[in-house]
Write a protein that binds this DNA or RNA. Structure first.
Lengths: 185, 185
DNA sequence: CGATTTGTTGAGCGATTACTCAAGAAAGAA
DNA sequence: TTCTTTCTTGAGTAATCGCTCAACAAATCG
């Protein structure tokens, strides 16, 4: 949807109803008939983004990769290529669309924050399973590792918005994987 | 200044002139007499932030620490404590105050982006010196390492705004330092 | 002191914000 | 066809945005 691109690029508050109606080729009345209001439209956009290949690659990797290391390595390497891809706005919509907002939109800020923290919990759960299965040594800390990878991914999204290329972000991904218990290039 | 807290917490567009005049206890006319306009006030705020202990800890560490490893270890560990400090808004003003804006404020977005990319260049320069001095092996890539640490720091700022504690961020910092050539906990 | 400068004030500017609604057009059912 | 339902439209709402200005007060100067 055209709304996705706008919210992705300019964020929630940076995108006006006028921008949206113009891009979608409709009048405000139609927009408010189809979606309740701006908040609801945004939340619908975020959900459809999460179900798309570009926004859902993290969940797909966690599901498809048999090992935790394989999953996180794939997530970081794919993020390095997807985030700076010029076919869409840079970075991740969930990470950057509402990082700082006016008090009246705190609800939207919290909505995305919750999504991010849910992803963090998913990371931790996957690493905990890996530890139970013996892939991760008992000395490893699933919670710490999850928070670390979440921070790296959020940082890579920001760097992509600042102009980092896929090559640069791939090097960042490889360095980040050195933190994996026992890993070394 | 009161304006710093507001911009830090809500971002550039999330802070209105009304918010600023109320917090500063002045009327709009006085604000526009003292600072030219909202953009100029914001830029002045960012500059004073960069000269403060909280906003300038990166430059101080790079200046004071004799080794590059010492400098980056200190930067990460201090960021882990400073970013979630409850005595001020979470995270880094430069990183989060204008990540997504309306087209009319693209100038402000670029202003902060340039600051971030300058910091990245400073990182790379410090690492290049370390390589010339033999602290870093010839196989290391100063540019990649700099981009990696920049991404981690930006990610830590975001995580702090999402509620991460100093303890959690410290663990992230320690994991991040594993990427240092030859390092291992 | 009076004169001049500097700073502050409240009122209000035009533009933009998210959003609404009565009226009309289009589509579907009988 | 006619009736009903669904969707779209242009005009408009009140509120807020960044910003300006003539009038006034405070401070500075000779």
């Amino acid at each position: 949807m055209a709304a996705t691109r706008l919210f992705w690029e300019r964020g929630y508050e940076g995108t006006s109803i006028g921008d949206l109606t113009e891009a979608m080729g409709i009048r405000p009345g139609s927009l408010y008939a189809a979606f309740k209001d701006k908040k609801s439209l945004f939340q619908e956009v975020v959900h459809s983004y999460g179900r798309s290949p570009v926004g859902g690659f993290v969940a797909v990797a966690l599901e498809e990769e048999p090992t935790a290391h394989g999953a996180f390595a794939r997530i970081l390497r794919e993020a390095a290529v997807i985030y700076p891809d010029p076919s869409h706005p840079a970075g991740c919509l969930t990470i950057s669309a509402a990082t700082n907002v006016a008090p009246q939109d705190a609800e939207i800020e919290a909505f995305l924050r919750n999504l991010r923290n849910e992803n963090l919990a998913t990371f931790e759960a996957r690493l905990r399973v890996a530890q139970q299965e013996g892939e991760l040594p008992p000395s490893a800390n699933p919670r710490s590792l999850a928070a670390y990878f979440a921070a790296v991914i959020q940082g890579m999204s920001q760097r992509a918005r600042d102009g980092a290329t896929a090559a640069e972000l791939t090097e960042t991904a490889e360095l980040a994987l050195d933190a994996w218990p026992g890993a070394r290039r």
